[in-house]
Design a binder for these strands. Structure first.
Lengths: 348, 348
DNA sequence: TGCCCAATTGTAACTGTTCCGACGCTCCCG
DNA sequence: CGGGAGCGTCGGAACAGTTACAATTGGGCA
């Protein structure tokens, strides 16, 4: 449709200037650049180098320039994405929006400049990047988070129901005082998990006690802190639901150190993205999310869309599953309590 | 220098056919395609779309179409690579050689077609892909493996000396029967670790016993199998060196299950790529490799090379370190032995 | 032999980029 | 006050590569 020559004609300038403006090259005045970018946006300009269509999709982490902390969840997600794009013979490029995107550029222009036909967005914060990309009509799928906006394609996990099941599993074993150890950041996933916990208690007619809900960062250290805080109470819980894999591992580790026997003294339900639950002692009962499937399905749908094999919008919520292992059992006759975060005592 | 038109003139064909041949498009006879690719190779043809230089480097896993098993090591490596390419404002693209490379294409032609200026090669098998790429003079760095060939740039870890230290650490504690549990595949890393083990024993005047060296795959299950095999012997070892993180975790887990107290009954030295040694009980003494640094330095050097900030070759061998934690202690008075892979008995 | 069809190739138009020169503006100094 | 020097900005033209469509070729078959 539109080309650099069309834009040049419309603005009465040369193609060279248009090209320079479009590629963030120096030697173009701010006003000219802005005019070019606006006209390009308005006329729906899409660069087609020669006319070659590239089969590349981008993976964007809007929040941070570089995703330094590549944990098990990100790794599994990426493995899925790589497999998913590979099906339709697409390649994957990491893009760094913060580093490379020009202020006056639209997201579409930015991705086009990078030669990307679509983009997978992994939002880690509250930035509205996914929404903005969707607003522009650029092919996109948001991974592992949902959105109210109808134009945002996304895939994520639904952990509310399974969290409810997990707590019901504890209730069924006879537990009545059940702690919740949850991530401090309230993304939709963690809100789900807290709601599931509340659903289960409400269903059993048990009042939620605020002092049995503790929050810390999602790390082994956070898990230790939450464990200690819960067990330091006059009436400690006999079971705890940790909503994050790393905090579960930290807590289990601390129990071994302190001589707290899991599940004899304390039942623990954790959360798992991959196969960490098999790597601990004891192997822990967990709400399991299939991170790889999230990446896989998102990448598959996006590449199908780009191949015109599908149309419309994509909004998938994958179920999680409850895997019962060795860390949950009947409540102890005497609950475990910690004095001064160290000495283990038993209370009736 | 060379262009599609030059190639077309030389072969007496049209530029359209040259372009089609160069891009793996259908509708070109095999003979013509081969002639075009050969002429392109001979004349040193490099595509320059428009004339735009792209700042993209590739990450290639030659062995498998898709790297499905994205463990902690790969994840840390990738985190380093992403950070490294970001310094010089490069992007990273995953490329799939097996899937996309045409038989008659050279590696350079293939990477050029993908718009890559350099490539990081993560060899997982014995394929000579890295050597072939280097032979063609395409900018490359091999990650986490070495090479005898002077034209292959590489970065890897040296674990022989630290493995020797680790075994000497056990010898210093008084251990005399020390087992080696090692990966079945003999890449240079694992050869290093076995040699370090042998060096230490030789230094202490202890004869290496073949039955104390066992091999299995690098997985938790492999670790369990190797543990059981070593402890099933009439004269079992009092300490074991596991040369892989996953097998270490599997073995430690099995010890907890069987009631073997580490380090009281059995000392274990493991291997760590990341921070797994802090996530087990007990935290284990380990030979530690900085996977992230491997990716980081490789990416940094390659992007500096592409920016003409450096020349020559790159061959870096990073040291590993011995981190002493809780899994090693004096040998027990009575060594642990397993009967029928299950019952724990003690032998004098 | 003549015809049809598919495979292969060529022509020409098109897209986007960059080299090099031109233009105009400011500033400094004779 | 006037004339370069220098700088920022832009245009013309040449060039790179791709593809739609036309043209050619050659084989199979009536």
């Amino acid at each position: 449709m539109s080309s650099v020559r069309a834009i040049a004609d419309e603005l009465g300038i040369s193609v060279a200037t248009v090209s320079r403006a479009l590629n963030n090259h120096p030697g173009v005045s701010d006003g000219t650049r802005r005019r070019v970018l606006q006209t390009a946006d308005k006329s729906g300009y899409r660069p087609s180098v020669g006319r070659k269509p590239t089969n590349v999709v981008g993976l964007a982490y809007p929040g941070e320039p570089v995703k330094a902390d590549f944990g098990a969840f990100e790794a599994a997600l990426l493995a899925g994405v790589l497999e998913g794009v590979s099906d339709r013979r697409f390649d994957l490029t990491f893009v760094n929006i913060q580093r490379d995107k020009h202020r006056d550029e639209t997201f579409g222009q930015f991705f086009d400049r990078k030669g990307l036909r679509g983009v997978l967005v992994r939002s880690l914060d509250d930035s509205k990047v996914a929404e903005q990309i969707a607003d522009e009509g650029f092919p996109m799928v948001q991974i592992a988070d949902r959105s109210d906006r109808p134009d945002v394609n996304y895939i994520d996990s639904e952990s509310r129901k399974t969290s409810q099941q997990a707590v019901e599993h504890l209730l069924g074993l006879g537990h009545r005082r059940i702690g919740l150890a949850i991530h401090r950041v309230s993304d939709s996933d963690h809100v789900d998990r807290e709601n599931g916990y509340r659903d289960a208690l409400a269903g059993a007619g048990i009042q939620v006690q605020d002092n049995l809900i503790v929050r810390a960062e999602a790390s082994p250290e956070g898990g230790v802190m939450m464990l200690l805080k819960l067990l330091d109470q006059p009436e400690p819980p006999t079971a705890i639901y940790f909503t994050n894999p790393l905090s579960t591992v930290g807590a289990l580790h601390k129990c071994l150190q302190l001589g707290i026997r899991v599940p004899k003294d304390l039942s623990i339900v954790g959360f798992d993205d991959s196969d960490i639950r098999f790597r601990t002692f004891p192997q822990f009962t967990a709400v399991c999310q299939d991170a790889k499937a999230l990446g896989l399905e998102a990448a598959r749908w996006l590449t199908r869309l780009l191949n015109n094999e599908t149309t419309g919008s994509f909004r998938e919520t994958r179920p999680t599953t409850l895997a019962v292992h060795e860390s949950t059992a009947f409540p102890p006759v005497a609950a475990i309590r910690l004095e001064d975060n160290a000495r283990v005592v038993r209370v009736i």
